[in-house]
Simulated assay, not measured.
Amino acid sequence: MLVKDILEKKDRKILSVEPSTTVWEAIRFMTKYDIGSVIVLKEGKLAGIFTERDLLHFASTDREAVFDKTVADLMSTTLTTMQPNDQVDEVLSIMLKKRIRHMPILDGNRLVGIVSIGDAVKAKIAKTEEENKNLKNYIYSESGFI
């Protein structure tokens, strides 16, 4: 299964904020949409990702200043990205290894979607279930039980 197969089943709207967005505004935005991270776009290009972890790490060192900051001050800018034609198994493996919960998907330099670890796990389970069904059908048809 390919990443584009996951993206085809998802809402194509990409929720994002600008680097100048205040941390408070970003928290309210993430709460409104019940999301754990938000893509940061600068002039339409991927600039970073702001996550709950980014907030927690900063707040644990400077809780007084956290709400005076912008998303650009706290966001992660060293991002691992994948492409629509990459295998879901590869994406899942990287996400688990790097402890990433949200993977930006780029087609060239254009952001085309986000795959969450939940999306990748669901796709993996669906693929495994389909393979199991096909194997059972094959076994039963070869053994004459059908």
Rank of each mutant, 00 (worst) to 15 (best):
M1A: 11
L2C: 00
V3M: 03
K4F: 11
I6C: 05
I6Y: 00
L7R: 00
L7A: 09
L7C: 07
K9S: 13
K9A: 14
K10V: 07
R12Q: 14
K13S: 08
I14T: 04
I14S: 00
L15I: 09
S16L: 02
S16C: 08
P19G: 08
T21Q: 02
T22H: 01
T22R: 03
T22Y: 01
E25C: 04
I27A: 12
R28N: 13
F29S: 10
F29C: 11
T31S: 13
T31C: 05
K32S: 09
K32I: 02
Y33R: 10
D34L: 02
I35Q: 04
I35H: 01
I35S: 04
V38I: 13
L41C: 09
K42R: 15
L46Y: 03
L46K: 07
A47L: 00
I49R: 07
F50R: 09
T51R: 02
E52G: 08
R53P: 02
R53Q: 04
L55N: 01
L55F: 09
H57V: 14
H57I: 13
A59P: 03
A59L: 10
S60E: 13
D62R: 10
E64Y: 07
E64S: 12
A65R: 15
V66K: 06
D68V: 01
D68G: 15
D68I: 01
K69Q: 10
T70R: 12
T70K: 10
T70W: 01
T70M: 06
A72G: 08
A72M: 06
D73W: 06
D73S: 11
D73M: 07
L74S: 10
L74V: 11
M75D: 00
S76T: 15
S76R: 09
T78Q: 14
L79Q: 08
T81N: 10
M82A: 15
Q83N: 08
Q83T: 15
P84I: 07
P84L: 09
P84H: 07
N85Y: 11
Q87V: 06
Q87A: 13
Q87D: 15
V88R: 00
D89S: 15
E90I: 13
V91E: 06
V91D: 04
L92Q: 06
I94C: 06
I94T: 15
I94Q: 12
M95C: 08
L96V: 09
K98H: 12
R99E: 14
R99C: 04
R99Q: 14
R101D: 01
H102F: 02
H102R: 15
P104L: 11
L106W: 03
D107R: 10
G108C: 06
G108A: 02
N109C: 01
N109S: 14
L111S: 07
V112K: 03
G113I: 01
G113V: 05
G113S: 06
I114D: 00
I117T: 05
I117P: 04
I117G: 05
D119G: 03
A120N: 05
I125T: 11
A126R: 13
A126E: 15
K127C: 03
T128D: 12
E129C: 05
E131Y: 04
K133F: 02
L135K: 12
L135G: 06
K136Q: 13
N137C: 05
I139E: 12
I139A: 14
E142L: 12
S143Q: 11
S143C: 05
F145S: 09
I146N: 14
I146S: 11
